[in-house]
Every structure is written in C-alpha cells, then in structure tokens.
Design a binder for these strands. Structure first.
Lengths: 232, 232
DNA sequence: GGTGTCGTCGTACACAGTACGGCACAGGCT
DNA sequence: AGCCTGTGCCGTACTGTGTACGACGACACC
C-alpha cells in the first residue's frame, strides 16, 4: 500500500503535515529553499532521516506537498456583486500575497503542475469561478487567469532573489542600496541611462511597482472585456 | 591572481567560452539544467573535473556566465523613428525569444543579478535606450522595462516546466494532451469550470497566449504614455 | 641542466538523496 | 502466556554532487 495510506501517528508526533510545516519554516527562513534537506528536516523534527520516507516517497514529493499547501492557502475574501475589475484586482492581490508570504516557494509553484484536489480547487476552480461570476466569458476568464498567474510569477521570480542573502528584517533594503551604488558607479559614457536611473531601477521589484502593473493589467483587461461584449 | 587573469589557452583547447557553450548545450537539451554537472561538463570537454576550476572559481560562476552569455545575446533589430508601441513590442519579443531559445536558463536569469558589462549593456542600457528614443520619459521607461522583463520571466517560468520531461521534438504537445485529459477527467460537480475549460487551460503557456498578453500590455502602456504626455 | 611558473587532473572529503534491512512494539491469534 | 505478523522507526551504506589539496608534467628563462 502507498505510504499515504498508513494510519497517521499511531504514537509518533510526526505526520505529513508536520513535515510540510517544518519544510516551509526552513525555506521561508533566510536560508532559503536550498536549506530544505531531508536530513535537516529530520533533525528539526527529532527523528531519523529515513523516517520521512514513511510519509513521502521522495524529497520531490515533499516539495510537491509544500507547493500544494501554499497554493491551497490562497485567500479570496468572498463578496457579491463584484465588477470584473474588482475581481481581477482581488485575484492578482491574492496571488502575489501568496508568493511574497512564501518567497522561496514561488519557484516550486511554477515548476510543479498542481496535483492535489485541494489546491486545484482553491487555486484554479474557485479563482475561475470568481472571475466568471462577474460576467466575464469563461474563455476570457481563462486568459485573464493565465495572465495574472504569469504576472505574479514573474514578480516573485524577479523580486525573490533580491531578498535572499539579506539578513531578515532587512527587507532587502540594504541589498538594494548596494545594487544602486553599483549601478551608479558604472562608467557614465557607456551606461548613461543605467547610471542616471539607478534609483528607479532598484525600486523595480517592490510592491509599488507591482500595484502599478496590476492597475495597468486590470484596466486593459476590463477594456478587452468591453470590446468582447460589443461583439456578442 | 584570479583565474580570469590567466592567458587563455596556452595550448589547451578549452576556455571559458568553450565551457559555457558546453553548459548551454547540455542545459538546452532535454536533460535540463540539472544535467549541468561539473563532471558532465568535464567529460563532454574531454578534460578532468578540476580543470574547469582553473577557469571558474565555482560552479555558481559557471551558471553566472551562462546567464550573462544568454543575456548578452538579446537581439534588438535596429530601426529608427519607432513609435513607443513598436519599441515595446520589439523589447517584449526579444525577451521572450531569449527565454524560449534557452528555456532552462530562464531560471538563472531571474535568480542572478546581472554582473558583466556585456550583458548589462545589452540587456539594460540598450533596451532602455531603445525605449527612451521613442520619446518615453526615462522614469516611465524603467517601469515598462521592469514590467516587460517580469512578464517574460513569468511566461518562461510558467511555460518551461511543462516542456521538460517531454522527448525533444514533442514541443510539449504530448504533455499538454495528458494534462488536458487529467483535467477533463476530474469530477464535474466539484470542478465544473476546470472540466469545461480544460482545452483552454492547457493552451495557456503557449506563444499565442503570450502574444495576446503583450498586445494588451503594449496598448495599455501606450495609452498611459499618452495620458502622461497630456499632463506635461 | 636547474629552477621556477602555470595548466592539468587524480584523489579525497563533506554532503546530498535514498535503497536495504534490522529494530521495537502493537495487536490478534492459539 | 506465548507467539507472529504487520507497521512505524531509523542505522548503515551506496551513488552522485561540488570542491580542496597537492602531485605531475611542460615550458621559459638563467
């Protein structure tokens, strides 16, 4: 029988959930995803290494479970009578919140196709439903869904690495300062724009920029929807 | 002295460029980035493992060099008298071309801040120049630059994993078919939208979808630019 | 010929994921 | 009671990774 079928915790305090929680705790710390090691998880849980393989078939399955857990945690506050714009904004915000809360996990989200029913329902079905409920035609809703996920993914991918390596609490400010200094110090004859725009460039992976992009997307999607509505 | 300072190729046929080329060749094959191993590169080049450390301080430096090489290869066909829309389109296309040509390397591009002058010039300075040349205000050009890079990054991140694991030449079509089948087979009561929209969902990470997104972005950026122009 | 210096690489070590098999202990049987 | 079998636990060990150390050989110069 598959490992999942075992009665969980006959007497032990460890479980699938505990393992995933430990893994998320490690990866969300400054150490990052690389620190998620079968051995490190085992010691963190106070068990032997191979014990974990009683709950997961491989480390990859643990990573899958992490992605699933994070995905399932997506939160869309329920409302009624939303306009398409409001729904799009809410969905975009939900995605990016997800990814900034677990920065290192965003790699996983993109590289793993969602498999569990829980995360599938939360991250696809419910989100699509939310969009369709506002009157967006289903086919268009799918496109919007893809666009927003892609946008959030890109944001996470662009932002996350610039946070790593900074002491926690830094919020990446120190790293940004160093980066700005580096850019500003380039030869101005060869890099006139980079030198001049260094302050703006380092601000790219911030939430302000993200909001700016979301607003743009929402506007343009809304406009596309109106255009579609004319045709039908 | 640093390894880079050595006269390259006193008599050996191997060089920094050869190593990077081999690494790209491996990672672009179906094996993916995981197959880029110090040992695999060494055997591919017909040398000993440690020879590579005469050219790079660490494997990480090799990955940096790969990212730099790919970034430097960005191609923006020179034109004059472009409209902002045309420039934005060209830049977006250039970015995504880059990432689809080296799908697995797109991970690297996001996680590594550009360091070499060559890639900095090609991927930042020149791109920004291109945008500014069309009359876009520099600060806005930076925002557009970030948005486009982020968008391309998200596209690559969303598309790439769905190509891995497929035999080369498949172009991911077989994988897509399987995914569609899986989605379509879900319980329709719980996943009505996913089941109904399975065909559209699997088409999300395609270039058509990307073009759709680019057009949307370009239009809205252009409109935002016009609005800005009114104010000044 | 001696004596660097420099590119090459064989060996070895720490750490990764994980296969194998033994351990302890539960519960149901006789 | 005594046993037996299933089931979680995990010590050990194997393969594969990145890389430090130091030996080896080829050339340049005195």
């Amino acid at each position: 029988m598959s490992p999942q079928g075992r009665r969980n915790a006959s007497r032990g305090k460890i479980s699938r959930e505990a393992i995933v929680a430990a893994a998320l705790e490690v990866s969300d710390s400054s150490a990052g995803l690389d620190a998620v090691t079968v051995r490190s998880l085992a010691t963190k849980l106070g068990t032997g290494t191979m014990t974990l393989y009683g709950y997961f078939r491989s480390k990859d399955e643990i990573l899958d479970a992490m992605a699933d857990h994070v995905m399932s945690g997506i939160e869309l506050p329920p409302v009624e009578d939303e306009t398409p714009e409001q729904a799009l904004r809410a969905v975009a915000q939900a995605f990016v919140t997800l990814m900034t809360e677990h920065p290192s996990v965003s790699w996983l989200l993109s590289s793993r196709v969602t498999r569990s029913h829980a995360s599938l329902k939360a991250a696809m079905e419910d989100v699509l439903q939310r969009l369709v409920n506002t009157g967006i035609p289903p086919e268009t809703a799918v496109r919007c869904y893809g666009l927003l996920i892609q946008f959030a993914l890109g944001f996470a991918a662009y932002q996350a690495p610039r946070q790593w390596g900074a002491a926690s609490g830094d919020d990446g400010a120190e790293l940004r300062r160093q980066q700005e200094h580096y850019w500003a110090g380039l030869p101005a004859t060869e890099f006139p724009l980079v030198v001049a725009l260094a302050p703006q460039l380092v601000m790219l992976p911030t939430e302000d920029q993200f909001d700016w992009g979301v607003e743009l997307l929402v506007q343009v999607l809304a406009r596309a929807l109106e255009a579609d509505a004319q045709h039908s």
